[in-house]
Amino acid sequence: MALDKIHAMRAFVAVIQAGSFTNAARLLEISAPSLSRQIAELERTLDVRLIQRTTRRLQLTAEGQIYLEGCERLLEQMDELDAEVQTNRRQLHGLLRIAAPEMPKPLITVLKEYMDSYPNVKVEVDILNRPVDMVAEGIDLWIHIFGPIPLGYISRPIVDLPLAVCASPDYLARFGAPLHPRELSDHRCMHTKLTRESNPWCFERDGESCSVQLLDGLVTNTGDLQRELALAGHGIVRLPLVYVADDIKQGRLLTLLEGWKPQASVLISAVYPSARYVPTKVSAFVEFLQHHAMSLAHSPVSRSKQ
């Protein structure tokens, strides 16, 4: 087995500082014979005797004294370097490039808290509603909404977002509010590619299931556009609650079909290019996402149209 030179140097310094092989072995938590073999192997590798051994004491040779001083300097520098790297790890800096299909308010909150916590990290966010080639595009983290993830990437599920079905008071005043999911087939409903199912919409209530095939209408891959159209009275939307929670709270949108729960959901995942090395700036952001997972999944709903 090849000699671990750094390990052997530490053992050599420990022997001299402790004054004996027995004391040094105790400090290093190894046996004295094992320690003696390490020093002997180090001397064979260097082709020089470092320590004169007697029954009563250890005596450094001239070469041993030179080697001891050099080892102490080198090991001190290595320890300082390790400490500097660890400090740098805690005090993150550099560029973090994030890709996301869009940034609803809770994700913006996560982003703000991350930047406040790590002011030396420069963050770039690319809003990309398409598959991302993370390596070619230099993306560190992809905030992915349900869909196929390219092979070779590593994904960590963050949260499954519940959906809300809602419309504006203006739309409901003109067309009325559906009281049962089947009535959605007579309404203008906007579809999204963000969910596991786009059409039909499926619901459940107290063990009862209902699947509704919707009329052809607007289909997008962005929830923000659907929200704006819903606010403008264009039709009924089924979006993650985090997109519309504030609008519902302020009465700009009203939830529909009380008691019926959409069976679909939107999965948010954190995607990395590789599991072999995840930069600390990336893992720190994912920790923020996980910390806010509950606020992403649950937003209060206070207004409904029955």
Rank of each mutant, 00 (worst) to 15 (best):
L194N: 11
E124W: 10
L96W: 01
L229F: 10
F175K: 12
P150Q: 15
S198N: 07
S117K: 10
D160N: 13
N120K: 07
N120W: 03
H180D: 09
Y171K: 03
V121N: 03
P104F: 09
R227N: 03
M134K: 08
P101E: 14
L214C: 07
D126K: 11
R196S: 10
N129K: 12
L161R: 04
D216N: 08
L179D: 07
P119A: 06
P148C: 06
D186N: 11
L161Y: 01
W142F: 14
P181L: 05
E204P: 02
E113P: 00
S198T: 13
G176V: 12
S198E: 10
A99M: 01
L218F: 02
S198R: 08
M190Y: 06
E183V: 03
E204T: 14
W201G: 04
L172M: 09
T222W: 04
F146I: 10
P119F: 03
S198Y: 09
I143F: 12
E124V: 15
I149N: 05
D206I: 01
R130P: 10
T192G: 02
A164L: 13
Y114H: 00
C210G: 02
H191G: 10
L95Q: 15
I158K: 08
L95E: 14
Y171S: 00
S211D: 01
P104M: 04
K122S: 09
R174F: 02
A177I: 00
D160A: 13
Q213S: 12
Y118E: 08
L179P: 00
G176T: 11
D160F: 03
L229M: 08
G94K: 05
R97H: 14
D140V: 08
G138H: 02
I98R: 07
L215I: 04
I154A: 11
C166I: 06
I143T: 04
P131E: 11
T220M: 08
W142N: 06
L141P: 01
A177E: 01
P162T: 02
D216I: 02
L141D: 03
I143Q: 02
L194H: 09
T222S: 15
E197F: 08
L172G: 04
L128W: 09
H180S: 09
P104I: 09
E137T: 05
W142G: 04
A136K: 15
P162A: 07
